[in-house]
């Protein structure tokens, strides 16, 4: 059974069908790419998984348990964490604090125990801080721990956002265009980085990305959406050769030049 499984997901906005009967599966430890032209419904699909939208039809399961009807924060605490296309860090908090907020669902402190500062709370806070520093070192932000998030350079902000999402040991990580706005060299770095966190942490990652090279380079499976419809899914090689995909990206009659489509 797949870790994250969506079947027949449909989301409508008034008369517009943004996502139509999409099937999707993410196996444990895999990287799945989600691609499609602008307006294909990728981000809508993302928002359905993270609970921002409720689908009209279909089922959505994590580890066999349904996620339908849950609020975003409940889905996050089930172990699905995400990053945002247009970085949404807590701008006026330090890097370490951003990561600590990411651990929110793991910490057990409550009002009473905080006020009493019980030994348990103290240990928990110390351990959390320890782990936050480790995580920041891991993503390459050592020495920047006490910088305000808004003062970090762009690439570092991307990494911090990922570190924040990783902080609570999620089962599934959703990355929304992690390489957006990066130059080719940085994009390669991001590609290696994503692969590394998958390998080191055994995570399952779902990736939306415009950069086809990035997606094809690291994904185990690729799903292609066009006008909200799942037009192809499979290994990168299969998808690359799929005429429907080439058509969607390059227009009708472009299938014969499949090399360019990739």
């Amino acid at each position: 059974m797949a870790l994250l499984e969506a079947k027949g997901i449909t989301k409508r906005f008034g008369g517009l069908v943004a996502v139509c009967k999409v099937d999707f599966a993410l196996e444990k430890g895999q990287i799945a790419g989600l691609i499609g032209p602008n307006g294909a419904g990728k981000t809508t699909f993302f928002n359905v998984i993270t609970g921002i939208y409720q689908p009209e039809e279909g089922s959505l399961n994590l580890d066999g348990k349904s996620l339908l009807g849950l609020k975003p924060e409940q889905i996050a605490s089930r172990g699905i964490k995400r990053t945002f296309q247009n970085i949404r860090l807590f701008a006026n908090l330090t890097a370490v604090e951003n990561v600590l907020v990411g651990m929110h669902t793991n910490l057990k402190e409550n009002l009473i125990s905080i006020l009493l500062k019980t030994p348990k709370v103290r240990h928990e806070e110390e351990a959390a801080l320890q782990r936050a520093f480790e995580l920041l070192t891991y993503v390459g932000l050592k020495g920047k721990e006490n910088e305000l998030a808004k003062n970090l350079p762009y690439g570092a902000q991307r990494k911090l956002e990922i570190a924040r999402a990783l902080a609570s040991h999620p089962k599934v990580l959703l990355l929304d265009e992690p390489a957006a706005g990066m130059n080719p060299k940085e994009t390669v770095g991001m590609k290696d980085f994503i692969r590394r966190i998958r390998d080191d942490l055994g995570l399952s990652i779902l990736l939306i990305e415009h950069d086809i090279h990035l997606v094809m380079g690291i994904s185990d499976t690729v799903t292609v959406l066009d006008y909200g419809v799942n037009i192809a899914s499979g290994s990168p090689d299969q998808v690359r050769k799929d005429p429907k995909v080439i058509e969607a990206y390059l227009g009708p009659g472009a299938a014969e030049h499949d090399e360019r489509g990739a």
Partner: peptide, 19 residues
């Protein structure tokens, strides 16, 4: 920290599991 997160960005705070 949860208060500060909500102050800074409600959407991101929810995505971090903050009710």
């Amino acid at each position: 920290r949860a208060w500060a997160a909500i102050r800074e960005d409600e959407v991101a705070a929810r995505a971090m599991g903050i009710p």
